[in-house]
Write a protein that binds this DNA or RNA. Structure first.
Length: 373
DNA sequence: ACACTAGTTTGTGGCTAGTCTCTTG
DNA sequence: GCAAGAGACTAGCCACAAACTAGTG
């Protein structure tokens, strides 16, 4: 029974290109599941292909690109599966965060870096195959420990207040240091990932040098946006083609408008929401489950206030993930398109009486002049 | 719940100054 | 390629009635 299940899953995750290896990546542009080796082969063919954005394959459905890493479940999910998996109240408190995709032809070291397993590079990639490859949990514990990502706990709101000069006399309370590999985002197939990366590494003669660099020096943000030759991005592309939003729609949180899925996900501080009330109303009140939606601002602030009142702000980072399912997203997209169609670009007079009044007013060089009574 | 009052905010159009884009020499 | 000029575009200014909001009885 279990064997059959494993076989089925293996079938579902077979690389579309070689049909042999386990697929770990998904290229949306090609709608293809790929292993690391084929990914490199396919996407180094020409400059156009190098621009394809690839992400990890969703651990749940095995057919979409993952955009969320659930630390609690140590799995990566596409937006739909994430919503399905975390919609109930108990699992909604899982520690989840967005994960990065990449484009270009990143080296193994960059891939390792991108998936947040840089610390494993020297330790694991060069271990013997039998130790890494068997991967059924035996030697997994140490690996899991290294991969685990620890979110700092907040004991109060004061913990969130950080000043550069501490001129106010307050200091941030002791926050446990982040682990080096806090960007670890490997899903359930990390053993296979390491196996394939190790195979890939064999074809890179100067890899050891790269690893020394990586393990010896970790930049604050390892996934810089313009890595060459491979670029690493925030994985915020939609499953569908992105909708071209006009420039004037791009208010402060641009990532919302760049892409509707991103608009559905809430990873921004409240301050950034405040300036985005009008367009963010694209989130449909009437179509959504009232227990989790209404306005995103309200929802998050309510939760925050409730937690402050209850003195449980430690859960603060957990509430910052809010996502709509595909139906809601489609609804939001269609309403946006409808709104765009009906948008008025000509000047609209709301109060005709004011217009009449303004036209009859006395002016000095175009400006309204004070009337002497 | 309703009416009233006082205070605050909004919206209106013509002109100007500044910026940007395009053309010409 | 560069500078100068022409034209297009746009933000901001102004006063005040209407609209809106909050408080009170």
């Amino acid at each position: 029974m279990t064997d059959q299940k494993n076989t089925n899953q293996k079938q579902r995750r077979l690389c579309d290109h070689c049909n042999q290896s386990k697929a770990l990546l998904y290229c949306r542009a090609d709608s293809a599941k790929l292993c690391f080796s084929c990914d490199r082969e396919v996407h180094s063919a020409n400059q156009l292909f190098t621009r394809h954005l690839r992400s990890q394959l969703c651990d749940a459905c095995d057919k979409s690109s993952a955009s969320i890493f659930c630390e609690t479940e140590q799995s990566v999910f596409c937006s739909n599966c994430d919503w399905e998996s975390h919609k109930c109240s108990s699992s909604s408190l899982h520690n989840r965060r967005p994960i990065e995709g990449f484009s270009g032809c990143p080296s193994v070291s960059e891939l390792v870096n991108s998936f947040g397993i840089e610390d494993l590079g020297s330790k694991t990639l060069f271990l013997s195959e039998e130790k890494v490859g068997c991967g059924d949990g035996g030697e997994d514990d140490g690996l899991l420990d290294l991969l685990s990502w620890e979110t700092p706990e907040f004991s109060s709101l004061d913990d969130l207040i950080v000043s550069s000069d501490f001129g106010h006399g307050f200091k941030p309370t002791d926050v446990p240091p982040l682990r080096k590999n806090r960007n670890a985002s490997c899903g359930r197939h990390k053993e296979e990932m390491l196996l394939q990366l190790r195979e890939l590494a064999k074809s890179e003669p100067n890899l050891s040098t790269d690893f020394e660099t990586i393990t010896g020096f970790l930049p604050l943000l390892p996934n810089t946006y313009n890595l060459q030759p491979g670029n690493v991005h925030k994985s915020c592309k939609n499953d569908k083609d992105p909708i071209p939003f006009p420039a004037f729609e791009l208010s402060a949180p641009q990532c919302f408008s760049d892409n509707v899925e991103m608009a559905n996900q809430v990873f921004l501080p409240f301050s950034q929401f405040r300036g985005y009330t009008e367009e963010s109303a694209v989130v449909p009140n009437e179509h959504l489950d009232t227990s989790r939606t209404t306005h995103v601002n309200d929802s998050l602030e309510d939760q925050l206030q409730h937690q402050i009142a209850a003195g449980t702000t430690s859960a603060l980072p957990k509430i910052a993930v809010h996502e709509l399912n595909s139906q809601e997203r489609d609804s939001a997209i269609s309403r946006y398109k409808e709104k765009r169609k009906t948008r008025r670009y000509d000047k609209h007079i709301r109060y005709e009486s004011r217009k009449v009044r303004a036209e009859s007013r006395t002016r000095i060089r175009g400006r309204f002049a004070k009337v002497e009574h």
